[in-house]
Simulated scan of single mutants.
Amino acid sequence: MSRIVVAPLPKVAEMAVRNRCREMISLVAPKQHFHRPAVIDPARHLLLSLNDIAFAGTGALVAPQEAHVEAVIAFARGWDRMAPLLIHCMMGVSRSPAAALIAALAVAPDQDDAALAQRLRAVSRQATPNARIVAIGDALLQRQGRLVAAVAKIGRGADYAGDQPFSLPVEPVAADALAGDGAGP
């Protein structure tokens, strides 16, 4: 079963090692510094500089753009799925869950958007996928509004309760497979 591990920045190294990840997508603010874990292949690390905003923005803020989401899709389609894909942002709540949904649909496009969003909610109570990233991904993946509607239906996640990495199965699995902390192997 392929899966995507979603983590906040402080847990990236731990989750990369624990889950034996070799590939990673980083969605961080411009000029935000962090160290790529040594287990991540530098050639398979996608670094995207964007802020966690859901509007076009002005000034110093960089809103998610079509090019950012196109890069997530292309990277996901190049993922060999032999090991989990690690996706992170600062808190693991907004940008990275949105990118995880898009990556899952990029590699398994025949799945149901609502079921995917429900799997996300089952593994993360606090995930609130970035609406702009979701909308751009919906359009680029030709989901015809289904992904946007599915994310709207699961609603805003619970208030932030600290670093809570999770593991999102790419394709449907039995409900009992979602039990546990979700971030382990």
Rank of each mutant, 00 (worst) to 15 (best):
M91G: 13
G92M: 11
G92T: 07
V93K: 09
V93M: 12
S94I: 01
R95I: 02
R95G: 05
S96Y: 01
P97F: 03
P97H: 04
A98Y: 00
A99R: 00
A99D: 01
L101P: 04
L101R: 07
L101Q: 08
I102Y: 00
A104H: 06
A104N: 06
A104Q: 02
V107E: 01
P109T: 08
D110F: 15
D112C: 12
D112R: 04
D113R: 05
D113H: 14
A114Y: 13
A114Q: 15
A115D: 13
A117Y: 00
R119G: 06
R119W: 00
R121P: 02
R121T: 01
A122G: 10
A122L: 07
V123T: 10
V123P: 03
R125H: 13
R125E: 15
A127C: 09
A127Y: 04
A127G: 06
P129M: 07
R132D: 12
R132Q: 15
V134D: 00
A135N: 15
A135L: 12
A135W: 12
I136N: 09
I136A: 08
I136Y: 03
D138T: 09
A139L: 14
A139C: 12
A139I: 15
L140H: 09
L141W: 02
Q142G: 14
Q142L: 15
Q142F: 13
